[in-house]
Amino acid sequence: MFLNSARIYAFESGGIRPVILRLETDEGIVGLGEAAVAYGVGASAATAMLKELAARFLTGRIDPFRIEAITASIRDFSFWAKGGGPILNAALSAIEQALVDIKARSLNVPAYDLLGGRLRDDLRAYANGWYFGCASDAELPAAAEKAVADGYDGLKFYPFATILPDGRLRHPALRGAADRDLVRRGIARVAAVRDAVGPDVELMLDLSAGLTPSDTIRFCRAIEPYEIAFVEEPTEPDDLGALQLISRSISQPIAVGERLYGRQGFRDLLESRSVAIIQPDLGNTGGIWEGRKIAAMAEAYGLKVQPHICASSLSTAIGAHFSAAIPNFYVQEHFPYWDRTLGHVEVLKNPLETRVANGRIPIDDAPGYGVLLDEERLSDFVFAEIGLR
């Protein structure tokens, strides 16, 4: 068996820009992967990078079972992969994920069996995106109550983000250094949401490295009465000095990881002992197998793992297989309300999202990632077709 073709999809979907890879073998077995730079800026660059990597490293009757050899070749001979950032690593992630999917489907086993087998039958999930559609801070408490009523006992949100008229979020500029009221507004938002959902719902706060370390510390100390489960990215994730300063100064657990790439990107973070939870994004850290290696490193340091997930429903399925197979799984990030966003495109025929109940994501035993791409719906979004013989 060898790789026969690659197809890359790129499109707009409800405020994000998913980039999806479809690999097919000469035997007709299809594997799927996603380059998860769907938010922010970078999807177009990742799409072009994915096309270049596929043409350079997947051609010439490549055996898809040799996943480690293929990814090592990309790291060794693309030059930019060593010390590389999100664009190359996102493209590499999509390739690695698709190869894992092909191998699992060929063996007629779920992807989690290639990671050591599943440890659990479903995953507890917290809701992100529950604020979609809110036009002001005043609407946040009711939206939070609705998510809890839908079965979620954990909610994440962004206390410093500004809600725009169309419901999108804008994070603080210039570390909020000149905005005297930014910390006060963040405290008020946390207090309002906590009051709405009561004491038994976990609240997670994504700070998005939005403030200076001193203001972050001041904010975290002020919200101690609200029992926050974790604060995410309280500073830039590669600023270990600031992370250590903040971790020594606040009581909340710290979570970091969506902007770190590969095992090497997490090594110094783990050795700093400044975080409690790591959040590798399987669509930009090197893939699902690379994520499994990172989780094993974190386990040696006694850390929890909560994969970062913010892309299409394909990323939900891939993340579920990852979390099913790691001992130190904490909770799954989940966006249950993408369909509230204007222009949302569902990429799968059978997304897990339709089967989430009471805040629990089911673990399937179907081969591979257990999902089918809706190729008819995506037919207008083909960026490139690449022959790989």
Rank of each mutant, 00 (worst) to 15 (best):
L352F: 04
I288F: 14
Y337K: 04
L243I: 09
A320I: 05
R340H: 10
A325D: 07
S323M: 15
V256Q: 03
Y330P: 03
E271A: 14
S251F: 15
V356R: 00
N284R: 10
H344V: 04
S312P: 06
I250F: 09
V345T: 13
F322H: 14
K293A: 14
N284Y: 01
C310Y: 13
C310I: 15
R273L: 12
Q252L: 08
I318G: 13
I294V: 12
E236I: 11
V231N: 01
P351N: 13
E353Q: 15
A300N: 04
L240A: 02
F266Q: 03
G265P: 01
V347D: 04
Q279N: 07
P234N: 04
T235N: 05
K304C: 05
P280N: 12
T235G: 00
T341H: 09
I246T: 08
T316C: 13
S312K: 13
L348Y: 09
T354R: 15
M297Q: 13
F266N: 04
H308Q: 08
H308M: 04
D281H: 05
F322V: 01
L269G: 01
G291D: 00
H344L: 06
A324D: 13
N350P: 02
I309Q: 06
T354L: 05
S272D: 09
G359M: 11
E353I: 15
Q252M: 13
G265D: 06
G319C: 12
E290R: 02
E227L: 11
I246S: 03
A317V: 08
R273I: 10
A295T: 08
Q279G: 03
I278E: 06
G262L: 09
E232K: 00
Q252W: 02
I326G: 03
T216H: 05
V231E: 00
K304N: 11
F335V: 07
F266V: 11
A242R: 10
I246V: 12
E346C: 06
W338I: 01
I278F: 03
E353S: 15
E224R: 14
R273C: 12
